[in-house]
Computed example of a mutant assay.
Amino acid sequence: MEDLLAKHRKEQRDLQARITQKKKAASKKTRKGVNDECAHWEEELKATHAAETAALNGDSGPSEEREIHVEEQSAEEDANGATETFSNHRTSTVNHSAVPPEDSGPGSAKKPNRQKARLARRAAEIAETSAKAEEEAKNQPDPRAKEREAMLAAFKARGLKEKEVRADGHCLYSAVADQLVLHDIGLRPRIYPTITGDGNEKSTEPFRIVRRTTAEYIKAHKDEFEPFLEEPLDDYVRKVGETGEWGGQLELRALAEAYGVRISVLDGNGSVHEIEAEGLEKNEATQIWLAYYRYGFGLGEHYNSLRKG
C-alpha cells in the first residue's frame, strides 16, 4: 500500500506539472477547452487511483460493503429483539398455564426473514457483477503485453538495446547512473563537487550519488520547483535524496540540468519525450536514453537504461 500511495503521489505531481504547462500555453480562445481537458485528466486519474486502491485491498465496492454491513446489523438486532420478546412471553405463560403457545406446534409455519432475504439478493448481485467483470477482463487486451510489443518495435526502429535495472524505487536514478558511466560523464557534476559518501559503503552506490545530486539541484533552484510541490521543499528534497521515493518529471528536469544532458525517454506507446538542459544546443548536449514502462514491472512505472547498437 505504501508503494501504491507513493506511485499515486508521483502521478499527481506529474499531472500537475503537465496541467501547468498546458495552461501556460493556452490563449484566451483556447482557455476554456484547456480547462475542461485538464479537469478531465484530473477526474480520470482520480478514478484510476480509486480503482487501483480497491484492487489492492480486494474491495467489492465501499457502498456495497456498507449496505451489506447495515443489513447484517439490522438482521442481528431484529433477531435479538425477537428472542427477548419470545423469552418474556414464555415466562409469563408458564406462570398461568402449562399449555405451550399455539404457534409452537409442529404444523406452524415460520415467517420469512426479510433482512436475510435482502442480504442474499445483494450477495447474488455482487457475485453476478464480479463474474461479468472477470469475463470482460478476459476479453480485454493485456496492457503489459501490448506495451512490451510496442517497446520492442521501437527499440528495433531506433537501433536501441535495453539494459534492465532493478525495480526497487531507485530505477530512474539507477538507469541515469548507468547512462552517465556509459558516456563518461561522471556521477558527480562539477557544480556539486562536495557530493561524496558519508562513510557508509552503501552511500557510494551510483544511484545514491545521482539521487543526492538531484536533491541538491532542486534545493538550489527552489523557485523553479516549489510551485509544483504539494509539501514543504525541505521534506521533498529529503525524500528525493535519502529515501526510495520514485522519481518523475520534476526529477528528470533536475537531472538534465545538473548533468548538462539531453534525456530522451521512450514511452510504452512508442513516443519519445525530450528533457534538455537549458542554454545548450542539441549538438552540444550528450543524449542519454531511458525506457519508461507504465505496466511492465511490479505496480507499474519503471525506467530502464537504453544503449545504441
Score class of each variant (00 low, 15 high):
1 M>D: 14
8 H>P: 13
10 K>V: 10
12 Q>V: 06
15 L>S: 09
22 K>T: 08
23 K>S: 02
32 K>M: 06
32 K>Y: 00
50 A>H: 05
54 A>Y: 01
60 S>V: 02
62 P>C: 12
74 S>T: 08
74 S>N: 13
74 S>K: 13
75 A>M: 05
76 E>M: 09
77 E>C: 15
86 F>Y: 02
91 T>D: 14
92 S>M: 11
99 V>L: 14
105 G>I: 09
107 G>N: 10
113 N>Q: 13
115 Q>W: 05
116 K>P: 01
116 K>W: 02
120 A>R: 12
120 A>N: 14
121 R>Y: 00
123 A>E: 05
125 E>L: 09
125 E>Q: 14
127 A>R: 05
132 K>S: 09
136 E>C: 11
139 N>L: 04
139 N>P: 06
139 N>C: 08
141 P>Q: 07
142 D>A: 10
144 R>E: 03
144 R>Y: 00
153 A>T: 07
155 F>M: 05
158 R>C: 05
160 L>T: 02
161 K>Q: 09
162 E>I: 07
177 A>D: 01
189 P>R: 04
195 I>H: 08
200 N>Q: 12
202 K>N: 10
203 S>Q: 13
214 T>Q: 02
219 K>D: 06
222 K>I: 01
229 L>M: 10
232 P>R: 10
233 L>Q: 10
246 W>T: 03
251 E>K: 08
259 Y>N: 06
261 V>Y: 01
263 I>M: 11
263 I>R: 03
275 I>E: 04
280 L>R: 15
284 E>M: 12
288 I>N: 02
290 L>F: 07
293 Y>W: 00
299 L>F: 01
